[in-house]
């Protein structure tokens, strides 16, 4: 446990030093502020935060997975490239402790980047706009963090399976393209064209953490599930709003846990 914490602290310190954490936090803050200011000028009063939240969800689910996949993919493969993996694993440290320590450190760093960025922007917007729905905005921050955790887990698996950092980064960008851009066009489209049943749409939604978080964010803003079309109608009938939220949250949790478990299993079997 001590070894895991030592690795975790080092990852956090590295994230701060390398400035990616600050850069992403600033980027998130600027994006949220820009959307907030635009909404403020167009309208608005009590709907301010909801509108801001709704506006930045789509941008957030583009950026957060990219951040998480890239830093996850670089973690183990980077140590291999630098030659530090041998130095690390020749210490009293198991591969599992190393991997989990890295994951925890990077997850906390990603959560900090999301919370600092969107949190700071939220506070600034609250100064100029009546705050009636800050809770939704906070939930959106939590969902962004959860999405980062799930995508980091996938990034770590990519890193463990890759024999170099460049390869890991290339695969992570492809994965980002697949999860974020291609999936909406292809998987959901295929699911809809093969069968318009609610089950297949639900499977398509939970099979991608980005999709799950997108729907969760929409649910938090608009509890009337009908806005989601056939999928919403199915969710409303089968699970209700609370049940649907629970199901989708479990899907995100699954994506945070399973790739990391697979990564740990593979990493333990690998030669150094």
């Amino acid at each position: 446990m001590n070894a895991t914490l030592t690795i975790m602290r080092k990852e956090l310190r590295d994230a701060t030093r390398s400035r990616w954490l600050v850069m992403y936090a600033v980027a998130f803050a600027l994006i949220a502020l820009a959307f907030g200011v635009v909404q403020e000028q167009g309208d608005v009063g009590a709907q301010g935060f909801n509108r801001t939240t709704a506006s930045i969800i789509n941008l957030c689910i583009l950026l957060v997975p990219l951040l998480a996949l890239v830093i996850g993919a670089g973690s183990i493969a980077g140590e291999r490239d630098r030659g530090t993996m041998t130095t690390l694993l020749s210490q009293p440290l198991t591969p599992t402790e190393l991997l989990i320590g890295k994951y925890l450190g990077l997850t906390i760093a990603a959560w900090i980047a999301v919370a600092l960025g969107f949190g700071a922007a939220g506070m600034l917007l609250a100064l100029v706009s009546p705050v009636t729905d800050f809770g939704h905005y906070l939930l959106f921050i939590v969902l962004s963090g959860a999405l980062a955790s799930a995508m980091l887990s996938i990034g770590m698996l990519i890193s463990v399976l890759s024999d170099g950092r460049a390869k890991a980064l290339a695969i992570s960008v492809l994965a980002w393209f697949g999860f974020v851009l291609f999936y909406d066009l292809a998987a959901m489209g295929v699911a809809l064209s093969l069968t318009s049943s609610g089950e297949s749409l639900l499977v398509a939604a939970v099979a991608n953490p980005v999709e799950s978080v997108r729907i969760l964010a929409i649910l938090s803003l608009e509890p009337d599930l009908n806005v989601l079309g056939p999928l919403g109608a199915y969710l409303k009938t089968q699970f209700g709003t609370a049940g649907s939220s629970m199901l989708l949250s479990l899907a995100v949790l699954f994506w945070a846990a399973v790739p990391m478990t697979a990564a740990t299993f593979v990493f333990r079997k690998q030669d150094v």
Partner: peptide, 18 residues
């Protein structure tokens, strides 16, 4: 392995640190 490596000090051929 962890317990055994606690008893070993290792100098790699090309020491690599962060």
């Amino acid at each position: 392995g962890k317990g055994a490596r606690k008893l070993i000090g290792y100098l790699p051929q090309n020491p690599a640190f962060h």
